[in-house]
Design a protein around this nucleic acid. Structure first.
Length: 482
RNA sequence: GGCGCCAUGGUGUAACUGGUUAACACGCCGCCCUCUCAAGGCGGAGAGUUCGGGUUCGAUCCCCGAUGGCGCUACCA
């Protein structure tokens, strides 16, 4: 037996230009697993499909991982730069008789597939090139005949593996076709490059999407042919859209960065994602909020569920409010600033006032976006009045007149605080036989432009005397929507 | 079509190796609080565990079948 080794895992996306939700969850699980055991996470870019890959395309993936706080220990490695390894591996398989040259052209294959389908036969490769003996194959190749390399799947029996999530899974060899390892242009297919790399990188656990379950026997066969020890496979169920079909653009955002752009806080997204297809055990069943450290400590392959999970935006939104609320105002500020600059908004208040306003508002924010949209009036004097709010609370001329009076009283008052502000307002209402609520609601719209805000006197306190006086005085000139 | 996997309220999940009024969270509804809206507090509706057979004194849990969903079925990954 070998000495106990720390796990080595990998996240191996293909470079599509962005990190999608499913990939992010796979990355997260690998990261949690590695961190839990003090292991190593390797980032590997599977870019053997040159048509669709370029080095720039990886930036989106890195960006997504950084946003989620997922760091890696080795890489990124690019498969496009490791071609020699794959060719050598194919050569080994060829030499040991586990693989053979195939001279069938793509067109021929397609035609035979069509015929098979028409005849109701399974559209598998008919293995005709398998009978060409090695000598003639080599000379045909040397003569310039283009050929691919296929794996020779054993005739009878079955190949299986013990999945850490799904348990024993087996496939009959009759169901596995002689898959291509090396294309005729010498570029490896996924089936070859994953195995060659996973062996070369000494990975101990393969944690990846369940869509790879059916591919796994093809890989197991190669491990065996190569005499390599099998890693532990752990397939993670897929993430589905609300209609229970695989999550795609149709369902809205699939890119992780799109959620950042929606004003989601990374901790919220990570927490949400972690709980999609995994539970930290029944001891923690009444808890939903887990810090990064909690997740690392609690993570285990045992908690991974076998059934696919539906991505639920409402739940994500809930996590987001929880996290925004729990954030320290100082820590929230840079995230909010990003929103501001994105919208070309500049706050006109002192750093201290900005922080105080954030403190006041964060318990009611649904998204970081709120700070740059509906909460503008707390950070700048340039804000808009929501027409619906004006129509609801500020259309009455008498109310506007009273707000003007209120403004004067505040201006004349010796001191200004939440409690004195409230006292002054209620007295004015009493004197005029008006309900305090009328003035309160009107003042809220005048001060914030919104019908919805924190407690009015807390708002006044956050705004300060001068702004309150000025904005109330301006109430009269707020346009009334038709 | 073939092969594989999965199946607990609308959603995410609990329910120790078969014995629970099937639990929690999101969402939804109502009430309280109240200056608005959230939040918060309280309460409620919503699944008898996809369906049908077994095994068992007893099945969400074990077995078989059906149905449904998903995945794979490329010289894509």
């Amino acid at each position: 037996m070998t000495s106990p080794t720390t796990p080595r895992v990998r996240f191996a996306p293909s470079p599509t230009g962005y990190l999608h939700v499913g990939g992010a969850r796979t990355a997260l699980f690998n990261w949690l697993f590695a961190r839990h055991f003090g292991g190593t996470l390797i980032l590997r870019i599977e870019d053997t499909d040159f048509e669709r890959s370029s080095e720039e395309m990886v930036e989106g993936i890195l960006q997504g991982m950084r946003w989620l706080g997922l760091n890696w220990d080795e890489g990124p490695f690019f498969q496009s730069q490791r071609l020699d390894l794959y060719r050598a591996t194919a050569e080994k398989l060829l030499a040991s008789g586990h693989a053979y040259h195939c001279f069938c052209t793509k067109a021929e294959l397609e035609q035979r597939r069509a015929e098979a389908a028409a005849a109701g036969r399974p559209p598998m490769y008919d293995r005709r090139c398998r009978s060409i003996d090695r000598q003639t194959a080599v000379s045909r190749k040397a003569a310039g005949a283009p050929c691919a390399v296929r794996f020779a799947v054993p005739e009878g029996g079955a190949t299986g593996f013990d999945d850490a999530v799904f348990g024993r899974v087996e496939f009959a060899h009759s169901e596995i076709e002689d898959f291509v390892l090396l294309r005729s242009d010498g570029v490896p297919t996924y089936h070859l490059s994953v195995v060659a790399d996973d062996i070369d990188m000494r990975l101990t656990h393969i944690i990846r999407g369940a869509d790879h379950i059916s591919n796994t026997p093809k890989q197991v066969l190669q491990y065996q042919a190569l005499g390599a020890t099998l890693p532990v496979f752990a397939h993670v169920p897929l993430i589905l859209g609300p209609d229970k079909t695989r999550l795609s653009k149709r369902h809205g955002a699939t890119s992780v960065i799109a959620y950042k752009d929606m004003g989601i806080v990374p901790e919220a997204f990570r927490n949400f994602l972690a709980l999609l297809g995994w539970t930290p055990g029944s001891e923690n069943k009444d808890r939903e909020i887990f810090s990064s450290d909690d997740l690392v400590q609690l993570f285990s392959l045992d908690g991974i569920s076998k059934s696919n999970a539906v991505f639920n935006n409402d739940k994500l939104a809930w996590f987001n409010t929880e996290y925004i609320r729990a954030y320290d105002a100082n820590a929230l500020l840079p995230l909010i600033q990003e929103e501001w600059t994105a919208l070309g908004f500049t706050p006109h208040r002192s750093a201290e006032d900005v922080l105080a306003a954030i403190e006041l508002l964060k318990p009611r924010a649904r998204s970081l976006k709120d700070f740059a949209t509906t909460f503008r009036a707390y950070f700048s004097d340039a804000y808009d009045y929501d027409p619906a709010a004006v129509a609801k609370f500020l259309k009455d001329d008498a109310t506007r007149k009273l707000l003007l009076q209120l403004s004067r009283r505040y201006a004349e008052a010796p001191e200004f605080s939440s409690s004195t502000a409230e006292h002054v307002l209620r007295s004015l209402a009493d004197e005029n036989g008006v309900k305090a609520g009328v003035l309160i609601n009107g003042a809220r719209v005048a001060l914030t432009g919104q019908a919805v805000a924190p407690s009015l006197f807390a708002v006044m306190n956050a705004l300060g005397k001068d702004r309150v006086v000025a904005r109330l005085a301006a109430a009269e000139s707020i346009p009334i929507p038709d």
